[in-house]
Nucleic acid binder design. Structure first.
Lengths: 156, 156
DNA sequence: CTGCTTGCAAAGTGTTTGCAGGCCC
DNA sequence: GGGCCTGCAAACACTTTGCAAGCAG
């Protein structure tokens, strides 16, 4: 495991403590699982992976953990069509961990990341016009990805 | 019922026929329910309202209808956090039926409409950079609404 | 020790599916 | 009449909840 990862996990753990939350094996495991990937994992997938290090860990505890960690801001979750919520560590300075927004293809369901900067203009506009504070990381924009467009061009 | 509504429904029915789909009481009822409101209705709410005109209508049939009508393009659905999908008639020229995108508040869950024009610039950018065709009506952007921001300003 | 967290089981919500019969066209 | 749609019931996927025991601090 890269030193960066260890540091990342410790930061998260420290944040937990600072918020008066307890550091338990389940919580450590959830953080570790999410720290070991840049993917967006569904709760069920996290359950599976946590089971590898904490065999007894129960589904419900993990859901509760995901919820607590999201509240504190350690995790970010996005609701995607057809798959419930997906989770990832809130972006920090770790490599590949830049803040990003999400695009989802309505045809193939694939999830794409885009830099939050792409939404900066829109965010400013919504704030100015409606007083709405956009949370770009939380955004899930739907549409048709390049591959699926190409496919339908061929089909007619 | 306004003449506009009647015409709107007939357009939908005609479109159904044109696509070789059958026009049944359940389908008529679903279209009628959605035509009588500008709200975004959850499937379950549609089930309730359809029951008023077609008492025997079954949940499953209505879900299947919602899915068929969405495929044809008569309906548009948006996935919202914590409430599954919400449906509305695809925007046409009817009053209050302009195409719109959706904002959802992460605090209070409220759904706000914004004109699709607000996303025009972003859509162009995504198309140019990624070949991604944004479907603005399908978009559900998350953030904090003005009311909730005001509330948290007060609370600290 | 105190009480936040966990494990367990069951219920809850939202949606889908297989099948036989019914109705639209 | 042929076959798309419907009603029914059960299954499904995802998540939440009440409770007693356990462990972190």
């Amino acid at each position: 495991m890269a030193p960066d990862s260890v540091r990342e996990q410790e930061l998260a753990v420290a944040l937990l403590r600072r918020r008066g939350q307890r550091v338990t094996p389940v919580r450590r495991a959830v953080i570790e699982v999410l720290d070991q990937t840049t993917e967006h994992l569904a709760a069920e997938e996290i359950v599976l992976r946590v089971a590898r290090t904490v065999p007894g860990a129960h589904r419900a505890s993990i859901y509760r953990t995901l919820s607590s960690l999201s509240e504190i801001g350690i995790l970010t979750h996005t609701h995607v069509a057809g798959a419930g919520a997906v989770y990832h560590l809130t972006a920090t300075d770790r490599p590949g961990g830049e803040a990003h927004a999400h695009l989802q293809c309505t045809r193939c369901g694939r999830l794409l990341d885009i830099p939050v900067d792409a939404l900066r203009g829109l965010a400013r506009q919504l704030d100015r016009d409606l007083g709405f504070e956009l949370e770009p990381e939380h955004a899930a924009l739907m549409g048709v990805c390049a591959d699926c467009r190409a496919a339908s061009d061929r089909t007619g």
